[in-house]
Design a protein around this nucleic acid. Structure first.
Lengths: 99, 99
DNA sequence: TATATATTTAGGCAAACCTCTAAATAATTG
DNA sequence: CAATTATTTAGAGGTTTGCCTAAATATATA
């Protein structure tokens, strides 16, 4: 587990993507529904979705002509554990391998 | 407290800067000492320090001709709390204002 | 099948990012 | 004060990012 975290931190660096994650935390939603909440074009949103997917922060499921996005809490948790580790090593939520 | 978190997440997006933070967790260090641990030029390191300082993730103190960098755990903690909030709102380390 | 709706891909452009070398600033030492 | 050491600032080059419009793909429906 715990692949490279670079894509995760890269994904978290953009405020729009953090907002998408926060929105997704309230519940899964279709690409269109999410796009309606943001003042940028659908293609731009789609681009952000790709980055979030690459980081495995979100999962997708096709439902008819819609695509439903949902949060993948596990990866977020791992990024969190890594930050915790910087803050105070050996005090993570769950034990992790020493590298 | 808790200014804009954009600079913090921006700062965390770069692997070199995360490594610097991790290094600093082990203890404060001079710019040169840190630079010796990384395979990039001192000016590039200095640039990363600037970004970490802008995010208030590190503090500096001049000691003679050296400049000592140290970790500012508080800001890291706040970023952490924000991630925790995405992951499961209302379950943060410390209570925060509702917006 | 033709049309409408939902989403993504392609291509382009300006701004930001990371790196470098060279030069400048700050403090110490002879 | 001149020379040395530590660090930063300046400026440039190449890559990546984030946004857009236009076009393509996928599914549903008349």
């Amino acid at each position: 587990m715990s692949s490279s975290q670079q894509p995760v931190f890269k994904a978290l660096a953009d405020p729009t993507r953090r907002a998408i994650l926060k929105r997704l935390q309230e519940g899964s939603a279709t690409a269109g529904a999410i796009a309606d909440s943001f003042p940028i074009s659908r293609p731009s949103l789609s681009h952000h979705f790709n980055i979030l997917k690459a980081a495995d922060l979100v999962r997708t499921e096709r439902r008819g002509q819609h695509i439903v996005y949902s949060l993948n809490a596990t990866v977020l948790q791992e990024a969190l554990a890594m930050l915790l580790d910087i803050f105070s090593p050996g005090d993570s939520l769950q034990e992790k391998d020493k590298e």
